[in-house]
Amino acid sequence: MPRIQAPTVAEHRARQRRAILDAARAHLAEEGRAPSLAQVGARAGLARSSVYDYFDSRDDLLAAVVADVFPDWAGQVTGSMEAADTPGGQVWAYVEANLTLFAGSEQAVARALTSVVDPSLLAEPVSRFHQSLQEPLVAALEAHGEAQPQLVADIIDSMVVRVSRDIWEPAPGTAPSTLTTCLELLERLLKPYLLPAGSRAS
């Protein structure tokens, strides 16, 4: 029987740190406010004193969450784009992946971070996040043959933000839109431009 190798100290610490960050993100998504270190420890199955082995304070933990979430979100979007076969398909994958993030619990995390984290702490990560998404989007539009790729990229971003607003902030007296409804609307607007006729079926 093969011998099972015990995790190293570094691997153990990495797993515990990952558990703490995941617990903090889950709390932010569910509660909409910053957790205490005790709350994070309880959710992660760790003692409060163990959480202090990794983070000195709640602000230190929130800074680590900020540093963790934006690259994660960018990786989800760019990963979806890389899996597409054509430049137009990459742009549509960008739209789908962003709307999926807006419609899911990660949007609640983003909203909570905006309300509990100092804006100066968010400014640089948000800027890097936006740039990391804009570069592949503009490149895909250029490869698609768009003469004004940056302008069209800005328009697509505006469309995604506007449509997704109805998921989280619907007009008074109206029901929230679903992810499917939002995608169907943008599909009608964008797919004729992005995808060849034979590729438009969802």
Rank of each mutant, 00 (worst) to 15 (best):
P2H: 02
R3L: 11
Q5R: 15
P7N: 05
P7T: 08
T8R: 01
A10C: 01
A10S: 05
E11W: 05
R18K: 12
A19Q: 13
I20T: 00
A24S: 12
R25V: 03
A26L: 04
E30S: 10
E30C: 03
E31K: 13
G32S: 03
S36A: 02
L37N: 09
L37E: 07
L37H: 00
V40I: 04
R43H: 12
G45Y: 04
S49Y: 02
S49P: 03
V51C: 05
F55W: 02
R58E: 05
D59N: 11
D60T: 05
L62W: 08
A63M: 04
V65F: 08
V66F: 10
A67R: 13
A67L: 11
D72S: 13
A74I: 08
A74V: 08
Q76Y: 14
P87Y: 02
Q90A: 10
V91E: 06
E96A: 11
E96D: 05
A97N: 07
A97R: 02
L99Q: 03
F102Q: 10
A103L: 02
A103D: 08
A103P: 09
G104Y: 06
Q107A: 13
V109A: 02
R111N: 04
R111T: 15
A112G: 01
E124F: 03
S127M: 12
R128W: 09
Q131H: 15
L133Q: 07
Q134D: 15
Q134L: 12
E135F: 03
P136L: 04
L137T: 06
V138R: 05
V138A: 07
A139I: 06
A139T: 13
A139Q: 13
A139P: 07
A140C: 13
A140E: 14
H144C: 12
G145V: 10
L151P: 12
I156P: 01
D157G: 08
S158N: 01
V160M: 01
V161Q: 08
R162T: 04
I167Q: 00
I167P: 00
P170M: 14
A171D: 14
T174S: 00
A175D: 09
P176K: 01
T178K: 09
T181Y: 01
E187L: 13
L189S: 15
L189K: 02
L189H: 09
L190D: 06
Y193A: 12
P196V: 15
A197R: 11
A197M: 15
